[in-house]
């Protein structure tokens, strides 16, 4: 399964264009074209231009951000199952946002994003701190268990807060289920900027990341400042995941599946893996968003659930492959 970046980008664009056409109601291509190029303000144009188009943009950005975040976590922990969703980083962002919305109503997207990034950072520090305090060669299982447990802890906190504040319940449950629909677009720019900076930074660090695939001692002797690299990239990964969660809610498995698919598609070395993973993240999120419209038609299914349906088989096949060093 060797595919190039161009093919994948074209495929993503096709899914995005498909996403403009289909939904609760499907529209013919001339309607889509009219809505996208014109300035009509009829219902059809508004649905396509102001509802569907933004969510495709959001899906692509969030997908790429989660994929990059997942790849960074996997590379610096040398752990094929590291991922912001499974490791509790998304739950940290969600918890922080729920706390903010519980005690402060009517806050803007900027505040939400800041708090989400903070929450993600704290959760990441907690999980990785716990895991790395065991030793840099902590087993994937221990890291995963620490992440799942921190996630359970934070989600229990979210549950209590949500029940204590019934008025925010509706809104929060919608957001907590993860979706690209009806989200404020103001924050898109900051994610796009963060993605560009993060991507560039990672590409610049690609040789160091490649060296880190050996053990810590070897990487150090090759001239990599392992501790600093780890801190920098885990921090960056948490920030990206936090912003993504602030926009779309906690969505797991993109960060797991995208780098894995990138590797399957033939990408070798981080210089190839970074762009390829981001493109796969985009494609996955766009596909999940389109699928989410049909799984429970006419009700919209949460993207997080759809991603889990896609991601779990990938996780299981990962576990079955002999590549993985376990326990």
């Amino acid at each position: 399964m060797r595919v190039g970046n161009i093919t994948l980008i074209i495929l993503s664009l096709c899914v995005a264009v498909l996403g403009l056409h289909v939904g609760v109601r499907a529209y013919p291509t001339e309607d889509v074209w009219r809505a996208m190029v014109g300035t009509d303000t009829d219902a059809t144009a508004i649905i396509i231009r102001d509802l569907r188009a933004p969510r495709m943009v959001l899906a692509a950005l969030v997908g790429a951000a989660l994929a990059l975040s997942g790849l960074m976590m996997q590379s610096v922990t040398r752990n094929p199952v590291a991922e912001p969703g499974l490791l509790g980083v998304n739950a940290g962002a969600a918890f922080a946002v729920v706390v903010l919305l519980t005690y402060q109503s009517g806050v803007g997207i900027w505040a939400i994003m800041g708090v989400a990034a903070l929450g993600a950072g704290i959760a990441a520090a907690l999980v990785f701190g716990l895991a790395l305090s065991v030793g840099a060669s902590v087993s994937p299982v221990h890291l995963l268990l620490a992440g799942v447990t921190v996630a359970a802890l934070l989600m229990a906190g979210v549950q209590v807060l949500v029940i204590l504040n019934e008025q925010t319940l509706e809104e929060l449950i919608f957001w907590l289920s993860g979706s690209f629909a009806d989200r404020p677009l103001a924050g898109v720019w900051i994610v796009a900027a963060g993605l560009a900076i993060g991507g560039a930074l990672c590409l610049a660090l690609a040789p160091a990341l490649d060296a880190l695939r050996a053990d810590d001692a070897t990487a150090t002797s090759l001239g990599v400042d392992v501790a600093r690299l780890r801190l920098l990239l885990l921090g960056g990964a948490a920030l990206l995941a936090g912003c993504a969660v602030a926009l779309a809610g906690p969505i797991a498995f993109v960060g797991l599946a995208a780098p894995h698919l990138a590797q399957l598609s033939g990408a070798r070395g981080h210089a190839q893996m970074i762009p390829r993973s981001m493109i796969f993240g985009m494609l996955l999120a766009l596909t999940a968003d389109v699928l989410a419209r049909f799984i429970l038609y006419p009700t919209e299914a949460p993207v997080s659930a759809v991603m889990a349906l896609i991601g779990v088989p990938i996780l299981i096949s990962l576990l079955r492959s002999a590549r993985m060093r376990l326990a």
Partner: peptide, 14 residues
Amino acid sequence: ILYGISLAALANAI
């Protein structure tokens, strides 16, 4: 445990 976590995630989505 890893398989359990995976299947739990799947069941949760369902």
